[in-house]
Design a binder for these strands. Structure first.
Lengths: 353, 353
DNA sequence: AGGCTTTTGTCAACCGGTTGCCATAAATTG
DNA sequence: CAATTTATGGCAACCGGTTGACAAAAGCCT
């Protein structure tokens, strides 16, 4: 080594910035340029515009970069370009297991494509959600909204600024990933019909939930097809507790089989019915939706219409990344299949004993 | 030709940067300066250095900012300062419910303090974890490692660069948040002793798990104090499946009460034992750790030693934020209490029938 | 009033990449 | 071999804030 980087001034300067607490400052393209004997702009091109510089210089620069252990400064890059290699995911409730797999799916896909996932929670509030979304917009390249609570119009407004993908809801003009409930529901209802049930109750979710409406429609249609009677009951909230509270109405309805908006409701409902002495599935069949973590912890384990949540998350991420790099695709809705997961909470109705 | 660059071209400019797709470009401090009739640097100070400018100018600038709907550009700020108002959280497994509440706790605290949470998963691998951590280091102000798998030394190395807080493990010289297992464990063991149990098995977690070691120590100590016999069994992995697999060993051990490294093991174990015809808790008592989501879905619901996971998450975030702003605090370990949550899976041992 | 300290605002140099424009060198063509 | 096109590298402006140095203005004191 002929010269030790920078004379003796080097020892004095460097207040304490990029190299947070100790260590040497991170290498910059200027350092590389010096080592490789070229202009910084050439370094920039070599590192980000493939083919723009000659193979010889390319190699020279890459070697220097490797030697200096160079890493781009994401902020410096983001400033002029606006690109951040980051995208946001907003979920209604981090502790709702429905979102676990969505988060994981999105995170995994992001990491593979060299993106970073930024997470925010809306606490089930439309305004919090919009605030979080707005704040994120400034720092991400795109946004995924999982089961958003805000208005269609707000979503479209956001989508005009940066690519947005919606999960579990369909919004005109915005790319969406939605489970197609029909297959799973018809399997479920056919199974119930085959087991001798004639009256089915559906416990609905939140009034503003797009998904709840779809599921109710699906249940109605499938029941009609199988010539079963379908009744709709309302729940107070889509949680275990809400499930407990709706148990009274379920018994009063006279239905022998229940489908609930989601698994949490089903679990709460089953707990309450069992506590009241009813036997599942001998006296009543219970079917949930989603197949969340823990759905098989119950006794009997919960029959449920599974949505491939992980797939939704990774599908949304893929859609988003394609949108970001892609050729300005048509932004179609991505539909993923649902299927019945038959476990112990549904089955043949036993004659009154 | 004084300046060739951009005369009237200006009208044409604005390719499509900061104002991503449409709309007006975001306001900058230069715009504010123009409106308020001051220098941009004054604007900068007014907006970030309280007290540095006169009340009069302050108001002038704030009004202009409000009028223009100004929002700082995080990248422009990060570039010279290195501060990003962001911190990272790395968890071993996003779908492991243990982390759900940790994530939520951290996210909530972050949002309240006006920070953004960036999430990454290590897929239970020490190298993936270190890679993720390194990558994050460049873009965050600090890092939280939840149940990290990497070496103490790697953690300390990271901690030399930027503030790092560790959850669920103690690392010398690094601030940590750990549940203090003793209270919960002694409650659990006392309860078992009171119910006539004399031999207790502990199903251990991963060999490298710091927490597993602490829990085994706690169980040993508590059993000694209550004059119970304690045996240790190994599990293949800390999941429901691992719990099923260890059931054989549990039966062979002759213990009438089992504590498992975590709730997932307990749930799997209970499922397997029940499938083999054993009655819980009449023939065997089962106690888990953590009180994860779903621990009360089982029949009987799981007795468990609860760790306040949400508190761990928010505590770690608070510690980190204090570290970032604070006066260079001593970085002590934060201990949070555990407690026994008595449910149905543990109780009095029935005499053999 | 003159001298001295304290406020307050301005100037200009950064932070570290990106990119349009231009000049030169190299390659292609007539 | 001159003329023209193309490949390549350099120059310098720019993204939008931050901050040290400094000067003008204002306040304070005797």
């Amino acid at each position: 080594m002929t010269e030790p980087r920078t004379p003796d001034v080097a020892a004095t300067r460097a207040p304490a910035k990029k190299h947070a607490r100790d260590g040497k400052p991170n290498a910059t393209i200027y350092d590389i340029a010096k080592v490789a004997g070229v202009n910084p702009s050439t370094v920039s091109r070599a590192l980000s515009k493939p083919g723009r510089v000659s193979a010889k210089t390319q190699k020279l620069i890459e070697d220097a970069a490797a030697e200096l252990n160079y890493q781009v400064n994401p902020f410096a890059r983001a400033l002029p370009t606006g690109r951040t290699n980051t995208f946001g995911l907003i979920v209604a409730d981090i502790t709702n297991p429905t979102f676990f797999d969505i988060i994981r799916g999105a995170e995994t896909t992001a990491t593979v494509r060299d993106y970073t996932l930024v997470l925010a929670e809306s606490a089930e509030s439309a305004v919090t959600e919009l605030t979080a979304a707005r704040r994120m917009m400034a720092t991400v390249d795109g946004l995924i909204l999982a089961s958003p609570r805000m208005d269609d119009d707000d979503i479209r407004t956001l989508a005009r600024d940066k690519p947005v993908v919606v999960i579990n809801r369909e919004v005109d003009g915005v790319p969406c990933v939605v489970p197609d409930v029909n297959k799973g529901i018809s399997e479920a209802v056919r199974s119930l019909a085959a087991n001798g049930h004639t009256k089915v109750a559906f416990v609905a979710g939140p009034a503003q939930s797009w998904m709840s409406a779809r599921r109710w429609e699906g249940v109605q249609a499938a029941c009609e097809w199988s010539r079963l009677e379908a009744v709709r009951l309302e729940s107070t909230k889509p949680t275990v507790d809400g499930g407990r509270q709706v148990a009274r109405d379920v018994r009063a309805s006279g239905a022998t089989a229940v489908l609930t908006y989601n698994d949490l409701l089903a679990i709460g409902l089953m707990q309450e019915l069992q506590a009241a002495g009813m036997v599942v599935p001998d006296q009543i069949s219970i079917v949930g939706f989603d197949d969340i973590f823990g759905a098989d912890f119950t006794t009997p384990p919960l029959t449920t219409v599974r949505s491939p949540l992980g797939e939704c998350g990774s599908g949304a991420a893929t859609l988003l990344l394609d949108l970001l790099h892609g050729t300005g695709e048509p932004a179609a809705t991505l539909r993923v299949e649902t299927e019945l997961v038959l476990r112990g909470s549904s089955g043949r109705l036993l004659p009154e004993g």
